[in-house]
């Protein structure tokens, strides 16, 4: 008799435990577990056409040119591409920040950089300025991205889908 009462209780406890284990290993729906993320370069190559032909910059240059300190991120990518006149036009700035606070700081730096590029090109290179107007900084989880291109919105969406 006692066993008959205990079995449903035991089954309920096991069921709850199973659900807990499921979510602990899979994460909250909508978040991509860190273990499933591709390395940043691979993820960017899948989403950004022509990335491999763009000029690559190291961490020191990224800090000097854009202003993001290596202390803020675990991975970064900074590449530029020229237009037919030899001017830097396309740019890919991506950071996987160390934490949420770092991501907020990087977001601010990227927005500042975007504004500076608009000032630089507004009169001098109207075609690049137009591209900048179509581009904006995006944040998902702790990944911050600024993709300056003719197809910025699509490339950004494609890239952030995996973040």
């Amino acid at each position: 008799m006692k066993n008959n009462k205990l079995l449903p209780i035991l089954g309920g406890v096991l069921g709850v435990a199973a659900i807990l284990v499921f979510f602990l290993t899979r994460g909250v729906p909508g978040n991509t577990p860190a273990a499933e993320k591709l390395p940043l370069l691979q993820a960017a190559q899948k989403a950004i056409p022509g990335l491999d032909s763009m000029t690559d910059y190291d961490g020191d240059e990224f800090f000097d040119i854009v202003g993001v300190s290596p202390a803020e991120y675990t991975e970064f990518l900074y590449r530029t591409g020229e237009n037919e006149k030899g001017l830097v036009a396309r740019e890919a700035l991506i950071v996987r920040a160390r934490d949420a606070d770092a991501a907020k700081r990087v977001l601010e730096v990227f927005n500042h950089y975007h504004a500076q590029r608009e000032t630089e090109t507004r009169s001098y290179a109207p075609d690049i300025y137009q591209m900048l107007e179509k581009s904006s900084v995006s944040l998902k989880n702790n990944t911050v991205a600024l993709l300056i291109s003719e197809n910025s919105a699509a490339e950004t969406a494609a890239f952030l889908a995996g973040e």
Binding site: F63, D64, I65, V66, G67, V68, V109, H112, Y113, Q116, T119, E120, Y124
Partner: peptide
């Protein structure tokens, strides 16, 4: 006019 920037600062 546009300025030089260094480590994120104009």
């Amino acid at each position: 006019s546009s300025n030089l920037t260094y480590q994120g600062q104009e």
